[in-house]
Every structure is written in C-alpha cells, then in structure tokens.
Nucleic acid binder design. Structure first.
Length: 212
DNA sequence: TCGGTCAATCTGATTC
DNA sequence: GAATCAGATTGACCGA
C-alpha cells in the first residue's frame, strides 16, 4: 500500500482507489450552490470587482461591527448573537488557490491575503485552520475506505489460499505411491511446483522414466 | 424540523 | 510568555 500526496488537487491526498474521486475545486459541495440571496448576505464582504470605494468602506465598517459583536466573555455573549460570515465564491476561490500552494501561511502572507480578500488576518487564519482540518478529515475518510477495500481483498485471497491448501491435502492423501526400481522404496507421488503464469501452486506426478 | 456545512471560538500542546 | 497549531465544539444558516 502506498499513500502518496498529490499536489494537483485541493486536498493534497490521493490514494489509488479505483473508482474514487478527489474533492472538486473550488469547494463546490456547499459553496457552489449559493444563490444571489446568499451572496448578498449582510455578513458578506463584497468582492473587489463589484463594489465602489464608498460601498467598500461601508462594508468594512459593517464587517468590523459584526465581528466585534461576536465577543463573549467567559462564555456569556455580549451584544447581539453572532452572524455567520459567508465567503463569496471569489473569496473562497482565492483562499483555495493559496491553500493549494501552501497549507500554512506566515503572518505577512495572512495579512496580504486578508487585504486582497477584504478579510481580517484572523479570518484568513481561521479559514486555513478549518481548511486543514477538513483536508485531514477527508484524508482519514479516504484512508479508511482504502483499508476497508484492502481488507476485503485480503479476506478473499485468504479464502482462496485456504481452499487451495485443502485441494492439495486431498491430492496428497489420494494417489498411490510409486516404488523406485532401484531401492524399491516409495517415491513421493507428487512434487509441488509453482506455475510461473498464474502463480498457483500445482502438483506434478513424478514418473519413473526407467519404466517407459 | 432536522441534518449538513462552515466560520468562529475555546482549549491544550508545541515551538521559539 | 507570545504565537501558532490541531482538535473539539458552538452556533448560524441552508436545503431537503
């Protein structure tokens, strides 16, 4: 078994499992289904291409205030309940892209990426933490699936070998012994040989050529 | 209503 | 001791 990381997928993991597929990119599982309503969520930070400077400022203020509302002290929420930030497709795409290049970011990279995405450094950091967690979870699930299949094939192989052993035992008991013309001692009735093609153990009857 | 998803938070470990 | 991480958990949100 060999589990090799794969650089071309977003999940950095590929196990050679027939019929299995890696996750899509960018993460389309839930994000791909977002409609306009979701994109216009109050928590959304708009993408740079669609907004003017004024709107940008407003959104940043809004983001700031909504994030500050998330503060809680000793488990007691202060202010209104937190609102869930929804990243836009563009933000998700950029984050996925940078995750694909690097699974961890240094503080400078976080800051730059945060500025690009109009997100806080902390939000970028959190996104990467969660993304790593999801990646690892996916990897574990795939490994589990692979081991299940492996176990299945080993079980089948074991069953086949046991059956073969039974067959060989039956053959060994059955045939009459052949006596040597010289010593009059019984020769082994059969020897085991390995078929080079199918790699199965086969029996070959040893015949006394002097009698032919 | 319920289960899934995911951003955010909390906690403990590790590194420097 | 601050920074950072992984892992567990929470809570908002959405679709079936």
């Amino acid at each position: 078994m060999e589990i090799m990381p794969e650089s071309s997928t977003c999940l950095e993991l590929t196990i050679s499992i027939p019929g299995s597929s890696s996750s899509s990119f960018p993460s389309s599982g839930e994000g791909g289904g977002y409609n306009m309503m979701r994109e216009l969520d109050i928590n959304q930070v708009p993408t740079c291409g669609n907004i003017n400077e004024e709107e940008s400022m407003e959104e940043e203020e809004e983001e700031e205030s909504s994030n500050n509302n998330n503060n809680n002290i000793n488990g007691v929420l202060c202010g209104p309940p937190r609102k869930k930030l929804r990243l836009t497709k563009q933000q998700s795409f950029l984050l996925e892209e940078s995750f694909r290049q690097n699974h961890t970011l240094n503080p400078k990279q976080k800051e730059v990426l945060g500025m690009q995405l109009k997100l806080k450094t902390r939000q970028v950091e959190v996104w990467f933490q969660n993304r790593r967690a999801r990646s690892k979870l996916k990897q574990t699930e795939m490994e589990c699936e692979y081991l299940k299949r492996w176990f299945g094939s080993l079980t089948e192989q074991n069953r086949r070998l046991k059956r073969e052993v039974e067959e060989l035992r039956a053959m060994k008991v059955g045939p009459p012994t052949v006596l040597s013309p010289h010593s009059c001692q019984p020769l082994p009735a059969s020897t085991l040989t390995m078929c080079p093609h199918c790699e199965r153990v086969t029996t070959t009857i040893v015949r006394d050529e002097s009698k032919i």
